[in-house]
């Protein structure tokens, strides 16, 4: 699948945003974060900014962005619509929660409830995002059990790394934040490793034989494409990343998304605040680059069944 930057930015930014939002909501509700105006502005601003920025970026993928509002209507059947609805819904408790925190310096009571609600909705939104991909039968690299956990865990993980950084910045750090970061990185690593193993080893359900029904005659190969030059489908679905290039990028993802953030998070746990802050910053930067790489690969390594008709492997 063509790795469209608008979609990559959307999923990574909103994933991190929802992750952060969820953690802020939960920890604040649990009283583990002070209802400090500065912290609130920056942390919630960052979370909601990432979410909003991501959503805006996703409009870039639309042929008719001015009609984007229509995308909400089909929540009964469409994961994309559900995601849109939930994204908007999430803004309601999150907004009120932010008002409580920033303007009323109150994250307890009703606002704690709103924080928890924001967290739950954030989780569901990310789940919906993941389901957009996981529900697509023609793309086996997406249509598998690892995709939803990966989206959820990576959202949580990037959120946690941000939380560590922010808490260091505002001096409200707690070991739990650090341990959560470490745990989520480990979980993310495990899920993605399992994902990659799965897509490398699972046998495709479909091949050119089943796609054409000609398999009964023997091996099937493409002789002529319907058109000489690449059409929309081939540009959109026919993106191919070289095996060696993909392997290199996976190594980069392993390193930048998991290994380095893990190391830096551990470092941040045991070092004094300043160093720890720097480590947290580096962890965020590294994971940021890593998650963009991971998401790029998520598209680039995905192969659409319809490309079988163009002589390409599924």
């Amino acid at each position: 699948m063509h790795p469209a930057y608008s979609v990559i930015v959307f999923t990574t930014a909103s994933g991190a945003g929802y992750g952060l939002l969820a953690l802020l909501g939960l920890f604040a509700a649990a009283g583990a974060l002070p209802a400090d105006t500065g912290l609130g502005i920056v942390a919630l601003g960052l979370a909601l900014g990432l979410i909003a920025g991501g959503l805006l970026s996703s409009l870039g993928h639309l042929g008719r962005p001015e009609r984007a509002w229509r995308a909400m209507s089909q929540w009964r059947s469409s994961w994309l619509a559900r995601e849109g609805v939930l994204a908007l819904l999430t803004f309601a408790p999150a907004g009120l929660f932010a008002i409580g925190w920033v303007f009323l310096n109150d994250t307890g009571g009703v606002f704690a409830g709103l924080g928890v609600a924001s967290a739950v909705l954030a989780g569901i939104t990310v789940w919906c995002t993941s389901m957009i991909y996981a529900s697509l039968k023609p793309i086996r690299q997406w249509h598998n059990v690892f995709v939803t956990p990966a989206y959820l865990v990576l959202g949580l993980m990037t959120g946690a790394l941000l939380l560590v950084l922010l808490s260091r910045l505002f001096g409200v750090w707690q070991p739990a934040f650090g341990w959560l970061a470490v745990a989520s990185v480990l979980a993310g690593w495990a899920v993605k490793a399992a994902y990659w193993h799965h897509i490398d080893t699972a046998r495709p359900r479909s091949d050119l034989g089943t796609a054409t029904g000609l398999g009964r005659l023997g091996p099937v190969s493409l002789l002529e494409m319907p058109h000489t030059e690449e059409n929309f489908l081939m540009k959109e679905m026919g993106y191919r990343v070289a095996r060696t290039h993909a392997a290199k990028l996976r190594r980069i993802a392993h390193l930048a998304l998991f290994a380095l953030p893990l190391l830096l998070s551990l470092l941040a746990l045991i070092t004094p605040p300043l160093l720890s802050g720097i480590a947290a910053l580096l962890a965020v930067a590294s994971a940021g680059a890593g998650v963009l790489t991971e998401r790029w690969l998520f598209f680039a390594e995905a192969r659409h069944t319809c490309m079988l008709y163009y002589g390409r492997a599924a």
């Binding site: 042929g63 008719r64 994309l80 023609p138 679905m237």
Partner: peptide, 17 residues
């Protein structure tokens, strides 16, 4: 009504969109 999100083209296994 179409917003051009292209999701339907991803969902069609046959490349018919």
């Amino acid at each position: 009504k179409c917003i051009g999100c292209k999701l339907c083209s991803w969902a069609c296994a046959y490349g018919a969109r």
